[in-house]
């Protein structure tokens, strides 16, 4: 049976055998190879049987590569731009200029922070109106300078707070969606952790939408859906299943264009390989989009969103 405890026990056994081989010169290569194959198979089995709730937990894993640190691995260079020019700068939604595949791009991303203080300042990656206004400002810069726009999404949602409401968080998100849809430059969004409702789609109304294998993208958190519809917080795993929030399901539904594979065990197992896979996919999609004429790209983007979800309606019965 593939469970994490069995795998860990096997990993320890393999490490012990390897030590014996290396230190004491005992010839156990055959046994070692056999165990390693078995371990790999178990890892694959465990990984392939992940439930949607498992993926929610992987997307939230504390060791998952995220935010600024991840963007620095994905891009060759990053020059941060700050402030919404209207009185605020939100550390939970960052952005600026970067080089990607040897060419300049504009990037936007959610940031949750590393140190406890930074995490508090970033409110767990829940951005404020100032963050979304800065994002819209950077989108306009991308348009003026003809830079492809690349967004990296990882947020539980926009911040639900009194000040955020007073500063019109709803309007700031709406403005981001409208601006992103109106750009003439290519736009690529990659959902890397949690893609939580309005706070996510504000950066995801792109020509191409990619998702890491264990990222989630959802209209409401499984906990929120469990509370509202099941009236039972314990129903979150069922809600996760029902919401179709996983990358494979969203690929089937045509919501996203590509699933970016993660290392066996999840992105946190190998952040460098994860960053490389994101980088390759984003560069490929940007250059594909650049190969299309502006009119064609505009037409495709409009029909993508104009027809979104139309598989889910039918002619009235009577």
């Amino acid at each position: 049976m593939a469970d994490e405890r069995t795998i860990r026990a096997l990993e320890e056994k393999v490490a012990e055998l390897r030590r014996l081989v290396e230190e004491d010169g005992v010839d156990l290569r055959e046994e070692l190879a056999l165990l390693e194959r078995r371990l790999q198979a178990l890892r694959r089995e465990l990984y392939e049987s992940l439930s949607d709730w498992d993926r929610v937990r992987l997307a939230r894993h504390p060791g998952r590569p995220r935010g600024l640190e991840l963007v620095k691995r994905v891009c060759e260079d990053f020059y941060e731009l700050r402030g919404d020019r209207m009185g605020g700068d939100d550390p939970a939604l960052r952005g600026g200029l970067a080089r990607l595949g040897g060419r300049p791009v504009a990037v936007l991303f959610h940031h949750r922070g590393c140190s406890p203080e930074e995490q508090r300042a970033c409110r767990g990656g829940m951005a404020l109106p100032a963050g979304y206004r800065k994002a819209a400002r950077i989108m306009h810069i991308a348009e003026r300078l003809r830079l492809p726009l690349v967004t990296f999404i990882d947020t539980p949602g926009a911040y639900p707070g009194v000040e955020a409401e007073a500063a019109n968080i709803a309007g700031a998100i709406a403005e981001c969606i409208a601006t992103m849809l109106s750009l003439s430059v290519p736009t690529v969004a990659a959902i890397l952790g949690e893609g939580g409702s309005g706070g996510a789609i504000a950066l995801a109304a792109a020509d191409r939408v990619l998702m890491l294998e264990n990222a989630t993208y959802t209209v409401i958190s499984p906990e929120g859906a469990a509370a509202i519809l099941w009236k039972d917080a314990a129903a979150a795993p069922q809600a996760a299943e029902a919401l179709a929030l996983s990358a494979p399901r969203l690929l089937e539904l045509g919501v996203i264009d590509e699933v970016i594979p993660e290392p066996l065990g999840g992105a946190h197992v190998d952040p460098d390989a994860t960053a490389q896979a994101i980088r390759d996919a984003v560069i490929r999609h940007v250059s594909e989009l650049e190969g299309l004429a502006l009119d064609e790209r505009r037409k495709l983007r409009y029909s993508r969103y104009r027809n979104a979800g139309n598989c889910g309606v039918k002619a009235k019965a009577d």
Partner: peptide, 12 residues
């Protein structure tokens, strides 16, 4: 699900 979320982009 997300198909509802996408209606935000559709209407915009």
């Amino acid at each position: 699900g997300v198909l509802s979320l996408l209606q935000m982009a559709k209407t915009v």
